[in-house]
Computed example of a mutant assay.
Amino acid sequence: MTSAAGEQPAPRKKTGRRPGGADTRGTVLEAARAEFAARGYQKASMRAIARAAGVDAALLHHYFGTKDRLFLAALEFPIDPRLIVPQVLEGGPAAIGERLARLVLALWEQPDVRDRLLAVLRTAAASEEVAGLMRGFMVAEVVAGVAAGLDVPQPELRVELAMSQVIGLAMARYVIAVEPLASASPDELLPLLARALQGYLTGA
Rank of each mutant, 00 (worst) to 15 (best):
4 A>Q: 13
9 P>D: 11
14 K>I: 08
16 G>R: 02
18 R>I: 12
24 T>N: 02
26 G>L: 04
30 E>G: 11
32 A>H: 06
32 A>N: 04
35 E>S: 14
36 F>L: 06
37 A>I: 08
39 R>E: 12
39 R>N: 14
41 Y>E: 03
44 A>F: 02
45 S>A: 06
47 R>N: 11
48 A>K: 10
51 R>L: 11
53 A>V: 07
54 G>L: 01
60 L>P: 04
64 F>I: 04
66 T>N: 08
68 D>H: 14
73 A>M: 00
78 P>D: 12
80 D>L: 02
81 P>T: 11
82 R>S: 12
82 R>T: 13
85 V>D: 04
86 P>G: 01
86 P>K: 03
87 Q>G: 06
87 Q>P: 02
90 E>V: 13
90 E>W: 10
91 G>D: 00
92 G>C: 04
94 A>V: 14
94 A>I: 10
97 G>V: 05
98 E>K: 12
99 R>Y: 02
101 A>R: 08
102 R>T: 10
106 A>M: 11
107 L>W: 14
108 W>K: 11
111 P>W: 00
111 P>L: 04
112 D>C: 05
116 R>M: 12
119 A>M: 05
121 L>I: 10
123 T>F: 04
126 A>Q: 15
127 S>L: 00
127 S>P: 06
133 L>C: 01
133 L>W: 02
136 G>R: 00
136 G>D: 07
136 G>T: 03
139 V>H: 15
140 A>F: 05
140 A>D: 10
141 E>L: 02
144 A>N: 08
145 G>M: 01
147 A>T: 02
147 A>W: 07
148 A>S: 13
148 A>T: 05
149 G>D: 04
150 L>G: 07
150 L>T: 01
152 V>G: 05
152 V>C: 08
157 L>W: 10
160 E>I: 12
165 Q>A: 15
166 V>F: 07
170 A>F: 06
170 A>I: 15
171 M>E: 14
175 V>Y: 01
175 V>F: 04
175 V>M: 13
178 V>F: 06
179 E>P: 04
180 P>V: 00
185 S>G: 13
186 P>Y: 03
188 E>S: 14
189 L>D: 00
191 P>C: 02
193 L>W: 05
194 A>S: 15
197 L>A: 06
197 L>Y: 00
199 G>C: 12
199 G>A: 11
200 Y>A: 14
201 L>H: 09
202 T>Q: 01
204 A>Y: 09
